[in-house]
Design a binder for these strands. Structure first.
Lengths: 263, 263
DNA sequence: CAGTCGGTTCCATTATGTGGAACTGACTCT
DNA sequence: AGAGTCAGTTCCACATAATGGAACCGACTG
């Protein structure tokens, strides 16, 4: 019954198909032509064309001159609203700032969704080193500090379920490629109370993360401090770990208090 | 053919219906129950229920405990991307800040879409007077400074078309209620080069706005300075008008230069 | 002026969405 | 406790809307 989630990815019904098209356009960092979208999607020409037409008609996409598709204005509405209303983010924000001040590096707030971590907020490092992370983006759980921190606090059954759905992809030489390896890492993280990313997702990028867990709201996520390897050694991460963990616990408390009684 | 836009609002096909449901939830400032959404939508129970199920499945909505629907995390992705990528906003941002510094009041950037102005960006007044405006929100053209400024630069035919689609609603004692009255106001605005909102949308709120018009990108919009009537007299608005107009023209130029050659 | 390519339109087929009605379970009123 | 109401969910015959292969168009290209 419920297990009709077999096809977890890709489009559920018409809406899903349309959204997957939208996502292609939104995820690109430049306007896309019809044929480019066609290549990226797995839909036939006619179908894709109609989806695009509908998306444009709904204002989710706009079609500039030279026939390129770009994100439309109506997205702004959804965007801004969901962003500013996200209570979790609001509660966590001051803690992120504090952590950023203490470390000077980029701080992320993320939540667990299925087998991915979704970045909900970030405070950028002052130093200009670009990282791939973008708010709203998803990264796999098994190769990110946030992901591993979040997994490490999951109850047995849910952890098993999540691990079962994983498919591994080698991002770097250090990426975990088996459930067994990941499990060992998670056990360590659980004991310590924080998790590392030892260049497992991107080379030259390390991070330390701690989990935020609220059973009341079924909220599993975490915060992390991330930086380039040349500047951020593993020793440095160990030092920051306490602060990260403290901040994570402070957020957990705040969530309980601020979002709790008022429902 | 093109004029099949007759039913400009509400859902085009399945996607449109689903989006209108999404919009109801996103527009609300608190989580909604099924029955509340039912009341706000014009869809039958079964249909609505399925739409909600799909939206949840797609991650656009989440259903917290107590069965309330809230904006989902996936919106953040669409949100953030389209927001940060919006070139127009990026080009205009510094001018908005400057204008804000000169006036101390709230500055808005908006674009025309159909018969509405959509707020694309804003710089809040330092003083804490809440206004209804929210980024991504739409307001009618006929009772906002931005709307009237934008209309005033429209070519004859397109103006006529837009005016034809208007339906008036009395927001305040000063709201224009006829095309004729609105036209007179537009003529004045066109001559002056800027438009006012004399408490026509909200009582105690006045604004002055100037249009931004780029035929190359088919971009019609404007910027405005808005403030509470007790602080912002019509005389004051007249004084600011020049600065607003100057900023609008500067943005137009920047749009031309920065978005032009690079396609 | 053939040939290719990107974009758009058509239309018979069929999958999908539709929505009225019936079902469930929680809560209230008497 | 039992009747009544209400929110939420499920069901299913029906009709609409999506599907996608194929043909079409127009602009470049050689």
């Amino acid at each position: 019954m419920h297990s009709s989630l077999g096809t977890e990815n890709s489009g559920t019904g018409t809406l899903g198909k349309a959204l997957s098209v939208l996502e292609i356009v939104v995820s690109s960092d430049r306007p896309l032509r019809f044929i480019e979208i066609l290549a990226l999607s797995d839909q036939p020409r006619g179908t894709l064309h109609r989806h695009l037409a509908h998306l444009v008609e709904e204002g989710l996409l706009i079609q500039g001159r030279d026939l390129c598709y770009e994100p439309g204005l109506r997205l702004l509405k959804f965007a801004y609203r969901s962003w500013s209303k996200n209570q979790f983010r609001a509660v966590a924000a001051p803690h992120l700032s504090k952590l950023h001040e203490e470390t000077g590096e980029t701080v992320h707030l993320g939540v667990l969704r299925g087998t991915e971590i979704i970045y909900v907020d970030k405070v950028e490092s002052r130093q200009t080193v670009r990282m791939g992370s973008q708010i709203g983006n998803a990264s796999p759980v098994y190769c990110t500090g946030l992901g591993k921190a979040a997994l490490s606090v999951l109850p047995q059954d849910r952890l098993a379920e999540t691990l079962g759905k994983l498919t591994f992809h080698r991002f770097t030489a250090n990426t975990h490629l088996s459930v067994a390896a990941l499990k060992r890492d998670l056990d360590e993280a659980r004991l310590r109370g924080y998790a590392f990313d030892r260049e497992e997702h991107e080379t030259e990028i390390r991070c330390v993360a701690a989990a935020i867990h609220d059973t009341r709201f079924d909220l599993v996520g975490g915060i992390s401090v991330t930086g380039p390897a040349y500047r951020v050694t593993m020793e440095q991460l160990e030092i920051w770990a306490h602060a990260v963990r403290r901040a994570a616990m402070a957020i957990s408390e705040d969530v309980e208090v601020r979002l709790g009684p008022g429902r």
